[in-house]
């Protein structure tokens, strides 16, 4: 049955507008001269547009280096989180031993520990290890993720047990069960989770802020604060240009793989 009720599109369009307007203003402001920024702040279509803000940002910060830093950290963290989550999910689903459930719920509890509670001991620990201003310092504390363990455990549980049983009867080793049977079966979840991890790490602001004060090690979100805090007149055009550049990689990646990303989210059971 297809009940077409076109006016239901209005609330949806309103939501879309709410999602896009801030981005439109970010883009528009990035292309404005200072005069246009202040005198025509409502105009979403700067004319004539100027690329001066982008030129300024590119001159002021080593953009390529920051993209590389951000990418390396996001990549390490994503890979490590997936690896530890897969192994743990395998451990929690394929074996039964005393204390398994307790241990699992203990893992889950870590989701509810706000990072401000752990940041100070972790900061001191990292700095005593000499890991300030290193990829290690940023990446190491986030190499396990309870949410990842939880979601992959759900996914593995939803695989028909007969598949694994059959492999076991054939005396197949653990590595092969995992690699040949389980991982292919939960591939959509893995991809969705990986994308989620990657985007979240790419966007992370606070922990890198504590770990990194050497400008050459900045990540893109950190570079943004170099354009705020200019007492006496933020250069808004430049700030929005920097925000645009910092958002470009995840947005482009998302738009290219958009259908796939959203579809995997919807169909992978990436929900509680």
């Amino acid at each position: 049955m297809k009940t077409k009720i076109p006016w239901w599109h209005f609330p949806l369009l309103l939501v879309v507008l709410g999602s896009l307007l801030p981005l439109i203003w970010m883009l528009a402001t990035a292309w404005k001269t200072p005069e246009q920024v202040f005198n025509a702040s409502l105009n979403p279509w700067p004319y004539p547009a100027t690329a001066a803000n982008f030129a300024y940002v590119m001159g002021a910060i080593p953009l390529g280096r920051y993209i590389l830093n951000t990418f390396i950290i996001a990549f390490i963290v994503t890979a490590a989180k997936l690896l530890t989550s897969i192994l743990a999910a395998y451990g929690f689903t394929q074996f039964s031993f005393r204390g398994r459930e307790t241990l699992f719920y203990l893992c889950l509890l870590s989701i509810f520990v706000p990072f401000t509670v752990t940041m100070m001991p972790n900061y001191l620990f990292m700095s005593r290890m000499g890991w300030l201003n290193t990829y290690t310092g940023v990446a190491l504390p986030q190499m396990a993720d309870a949410l990842g363990i939880f979601l992959l455990r759900q996914s593995i549980r939803s695989i028909p047990p007969s598949l694994v049983e059959a492999a076991r009867l054939d005396r197949v080793g653990h590595g092969r069960i995992l690699g040949r049977v389980l991982l292919p079966a939960i591939k959509p979840s893995l991809i969705a989770l990986g994308i989620l991890f990657f985007i979240n790490t790419w966007n992370e602001y606070f922990w890198p802020l504590l770990m990194i004060n050497d400008k050459s090690m900045y990540t893109l979100p950190l570079a943004l604060q170099m354009f705020t805090n200019l007492e006496g007149g933020t250069n808004w055009g430049a700030m929005m240009a920097a925000a645009t550049l910092a958002s470009l990689p995840p947005v482009v990646a998302y738009l290219l793989a958009q259908r796939y990303v959203v579809d995997t989210f919807i169909h992978s059971g990436l929900k509680g």
Partner: peptide, 12 residues
């Protein structure tokens, strides 16, 4: 293995 060659020392 993941980290090899990734960390740069605290130079400053």
């Amino acid at each position: 293995s993941l980290l090899t060659g990734c960390g740069t020392g605290n130079k400053a």
